[in-house]
Nucleic acid binder design. Sequence first.
DNA 1: CTGAATCCCGGCGGATACTG
DNA 2: CAGTATCCGCCGGGATTCAG
Lengths: 121, 121
Amino acid sequence: MRNPNAFAAACPSREVLARLGAKWASLIINKLNEGPVRFTDLLEQVEGISKKMLTQTLRDLERDGFVTRHLDASRMPVQVDYALTGLGRSAVPIVMTAKEWAEANFESVLEARQRYDSRKN
Amino acid sequence: MRNPNAFAAACPSREVLARLGAKWASLIINKLNEGPVRFTDLLEQVEGISKKMLTQTLRDLERDGFVTRHLDASRMPVQVDYALTGLGRSAVPIVMTAKEWAEANFESVLEARQRYDSRKN
DNA sequence: CTGAATCCCGGCGGATACTG
DNA sequence: CAGTATCCGCCGGGATTCAG
């Protein structure tokens, strides 16, 4: 495609944008940026995520080439860890910046929200 | 808050992350970065969005301090345009980078997806 | 032109239980 | 440990209609 443009309804880049914007995806990518992480570790370090959503989000990220899954069957019990691919690493600046921006500016957002809510009603 | 951390379940930064990740938010912010835009123009330039979701997303963004709404009642029919606030502009690098990354890498994503799908049966 | 109000459906996502 | 399998509530989001 010559001119990929997310403003266009049919452009596949929108799906990619949706992937990155998915509820847990950016947090998982941020965490995997620290290095390979095991399933259970992700489960407890990305607080509040359920097994189901962790599995599902990891599958989506694996399918879209952001993440690789490595199973070590020599271990008992089985051990699995996930790591970023080159593509996944190239997306890190985006999700990391987003996370940091959110952490740095959430107070401003909450204040704006209060002003808005007290002004209306 | 001393140590805002989006990995923590209770951290409000997660709401902010959700705002930016919402289906239409990043596209709208990207478009508003070109300057103030009228409702109808947004409606046709952010292809595929419905009136309902445009209104709703703009309200959310306004409430959270990303966007200002300006009504010009001297016009007939009424004319409304939306613009970014300082906070909104500070978020532009994130959503712009995300959009550009998606446009630049969606082919890699689609290829990975095909490999994944053909490998599994 | 810029919405608000309804109706409605698919699916995201949580809770829980079961498995190799 | 690392998932799968169900069940199900909620709400994101589209279509449509009405209004100032």
